[in-house]
Design a protein around this nucleic acid. Structure first.
Length: 231
DNA sequence: AGTAAGATCCAC
DNA sequence: TGGATCTTACTT
């Protein structure tokens, strides 16, 4: 049971076989629990983005790592739903996606922000912020995909492909996804930091819990910024 | 082999 | 607003 009285249950593989665009909003209010190096974190998911792949769904997704087909990097995105695709962003940040969509097609939901509801101290240590946590420091623990990855402790290469449905241990880490009912107050808009038309309202594939303080501040993607400047 | 850009964050 | 930091993928 969560704060708002929502009942959560372990995610089943079948919950995640749908297209990322359909699964993404269902992950809002869900929780990701991790146990990494003996430290347990529970994260309430507040902001996500859907990514498809070549040939996934009716619309090809020019903003996806899988837009050109299977590669060594994006292999996890083409595999069994329920695993986590963990990739390195800008050489620094490990970002976490829940793989979904039918097996053999590419798809994932990027976890962009969340609220740490258990293990705040461990998350703060990993993030390098001192205790006691101020209100804003607590809010910022997992606000943005890079911070989120660091807070939950999942790291590129080591934990890419870990199974969040069966909870199998991988390189000292365990991850589990817990789902609840679909929330009522969900907003949608352009994805953040995505270049080209994929980052514009042509792809309103970012979803967040309306009004939640842990949702990351909106920043124009390169393509969207260019589009906005062009009269 | 070389290079440019990237689903970001933080300090200046 | 720019630098960090390194991997990937595309170009020569």
């Amino acid at each position: 049971m969560t704060r708002d009285g929502t009942a959560l249950r372990p995610a089943r593989r079948d919950d995640l076989r749908g297209l990322p665009l359909d699964v993404a909003p269902r992950l809002l209010g869900a929780e990701l629990a991790t146990d990494v190096d003996g430290e347990r974190i529970r994260l309430r998911i507040t902001e996500v983005e859907a990514y498809h792949g070549r040939g996934t769904g009716d619309l090809p997704d020019p903003g996806s790592h899988a837009r050109m087909g299977p590669t060594a990097r994006n292999a996890t995105m083409w595999g069994e739903p329920g695993h986590l695709y963990v990739y390195l962003s800008h050489g620094i940040h490990s970002c976490v996606n829940v793989v979904c969509g039918p097996e053999g097609t590419a798809g994932g939901v990027l976890l962009r922000a969340g609220e740490v509801v258990e293990g705040m101290d461990a998350a703060a240590r990993r993030r390098g912020v001192g205790s006691p946590l101020s209100r804003t420091a607590l809010r910022d623990l997992a606000r943005g995909p890079g911070r989120l990855g660091q807070a939950v402790g999942l790291r590129y290469a080591l934990h890419d492909g870990i199974d969040a449905v069966d909870g199998a241990e991988q390189n000292g880490a365990v991850a589990r996804l817990m789902l609840g009912r679909m929330l009522d107050d969900v907003s949608a808009g352009p994805r953040v930091g995505v270049a080209g038309v994929a980052g514009t309202m042509a792809f309103p594939w970012r979803f967040w819990i309306t009004g939640d303080p842990t949702v990351s501040p909106f920043r124009w993607g390169r393509g969207a910024a260019e589009a906005a400047r062009t009269p």
